[in-house]
Amino acid sequence: MKQQFFKGVRHGVPIMLGYLSVSFGFGVLCIRQNLSILAAVGISVTNLTSAGQVAGVEIIAASGSLIEMILCQLVINLRYSLMSLSLSQKLAPSFTLMHRLFVGYGITDEIFAVASSRKEPLTPPYMYGLILTPFLGWSFGTLIGAIAGDIMPASVTAALSLMLYAMFIAIIIPPAKKNKKVLLVVLLAAALSVVIHYCLPMISGGFAVIIAALVSSVIGALFFPVSAEERGEAAS
């Protein structure tokens, strides 16, 4: 039991280190968008997701509607449903409803990737350990980023606010290099987002992301369907 928990904690360490830097960027971004340090940390603690949080902060900064917020989170985070679905097949019998309600909170791309690669069934203590370390990295990184954003000169935080987007690029490019279908969908999504921004300025940022991402993914799925083997290669 205890052993399972610490095994999870250990497996979570590499994820934690990655999260520290991404959430640092998120913390800086929050301050640049005039959110408080408390709000920045509050968002990270309650959400534990990168893309959804960035889109959420943009909606908050633009005083968007709550409907926009719900739809935006739904589209951006829909992949977690699939991951939960997949993990639900690997749970040990000791996973009661209560444990499922708690562990469900912590399903992220990276935690899913590690958990789904385990050979043996997933136990509650292992999953709590695997979620705890990345959670601490994510929350602590946000706090440091927000404090840094608060005390550093504007010229430095302006440059640092590029970090998060640069990391998004670093996530997209390697798979797009390997897979032409992913490259096409990525280019289409970027093009649609740019066109909406300049030609349809009445559409707010949150909805622009929803429309661009959904349209490009549906076009991708219609014209370049992905086989089960190809999907198996990706973490999600």
Partner: peptide
């Protein structure tokens, strides 16, 4: 079809969020 959409969504979301926003980031 649904599996393909779900496969593409993370990449499409990150791309749409990055462009054109990254050009105004600083």
């Amino acid at each position: 079809f649904l599996n393909s959409v779900l496969y593409y969504i993370p990449y499409a979301v990150l791309s749409a969020m990055t462009f054109p926003a990254i050009f105004f980031a600083t």
